[in-house]
């Protein structure tokens, strides 16, 4: 039944009926306003918060990036796009961009493949299902500081567990933090540790919506588990894959805590914001942090943030197109 305005009360006897025609209009209008406005009022808190803590800083950062603006000085001079020009010619910036992409790829690709595989394993009748699912999520709820501190010890050069195990196979001690490739691998492992289970759970939720009959039919046709995964599961959960790829890409472009703390635990406080003495694992976010919060050059850091923002949008867009295509081919 369609909603309708409450019946207007009958006019009490003796009251002049002169105002009568106005009252239903007023009440109905109020109701119409209520229906039209209330939904906006309900979602307003989000948009107010977003404006205050998302949109405003975004625009203000753009404004700051056009200035020579440091924390220590009270005067801010307008310098136009100079910060951007300096930034785009700074080899350290491009080094950070390379490191971000490298760590992003090394961490995201194996992580999502592993997550699909884990979800596939869990998407069958198992005892103690809840236990396995919670276990998957556990690394995600541990503090990033704890994860990095522990993994930095595992990746220690002299007394680290990983080098000890490699030593059993006759490999020499690897200085994980010193090399570009090795440090990227170490950081990627930390990221994978925290986020693989999270993505696996998202995939698992999507897989449970795939109709059983498809698998039954495939089994009758003699398709192996792997074929079923490739031919049925992946195409069916494609929208979820697109979602996780985009979210992971955005996350990977903004990695800060892992390299910062990894540097702090391996290079001391000196190389902390540079991601090692050779900037071998300084990511874009760390580059922004270096300029904004240790050199206090807010104008330059804001410019770097904006370029980083553009990179994130581009990377997410490219991955969106790529994953859509990939799904199409499998079909």
């Amino acid at each position: 039944m369609a909603t309708r305005a409450p019946d207007r009360p009958a006019a009490p006897a003796g009251v002049p009926t002169r105002r009568h025609p106005r009252r239903p209009g007023w009440s109905a209008r109020l109701h119409r306003i209520d229906v039209a406005v209330s939904p906006y009022a309900y979602i307003a808190p989000f948009f107010l918060l977003f404006s205050a803590f998302g949109l405003f800083p975004l625009l203000y950062t753009a404004w700051v990036s056009l200035h020579e603006w440091t924390l220590l000085s009270d005067t801010q001079t307008f310098i136009g796009a100079e910060n951007y020009a300096t930034l785009l010619t700074d080899p350290y910036f491009w080094n950070a961009t390379f490191n971000t992409l490298s760590i992003g790829i090394i961490s995201t690709v194996p992580q999502l493949v592993l997550a699909i595989w884990l979800a596939h394993l869990l998407n069958r009748p198992l005892r103690a299902q809840t236990f396995f699912r919670i276990t998957l999520l556990l690394p995600n709820v541990t503090s990033v500081v704890a994860v990095v501190v522990i993994f930095s010890q595992l990746f220690g050069r002299d007394f680290g567990l990983i080098n000890w195990v490699l030593g059993l196979f006759g490999a020499g001690a690897i200085d994980w933090a010193a090399g570009t490739a090795t440090s990227h691998v170490a950081i990627s492992v930390m990221i994978m540790w925290r986020w693989t289970g999270y993505n696996a759970l998202i995939y698992l939720a999507a897989m449970q919506a795939v109709p059983r009959e498809l698998y039954e039919a495939a089994t009758i046709d003699g398709a192996s588990g792997l074929t079923q995964l490739r031919r049925i599961t992946v195409p069916m959960i494609r929208p979820t894959i697109v979602f996780t790829v985009i979210v992971s890409t955005i996350g990977a472009m903004q990695i800060l805590a892992e390299p910062l703390l990894f540097a702090a635990t391996t290079s001391g406080s000196g190389g902390m914001v540079t991601g090692g003495p050779d900037r071998q694992f300084q990511t874009l976010a760390l580059y922004v942090y270096e300029h904004g919060f240790t050199n206090f050059d807010f104008g330059y850091a804001s410019a770097a943030s904006w370029v980083m923002f553009v990179f994130v949008v581009i990377a997410a867009g490219v991955n969106y197109l790529f994953t859509r295509r990939m799904g199409g081919e499998i079909r």
Binding site: S107, G251, A257
Partner: peptide, 13 residues
């Protein structure tokens, strides 16, 4: 794998 999602870095930092 959203490490730090906020639009602005300062609160995360």
């Amino acid at each position: 794998m959203g490490i730090l999602r906020p639009r602005l870095l300062a609160p995360a930092v």
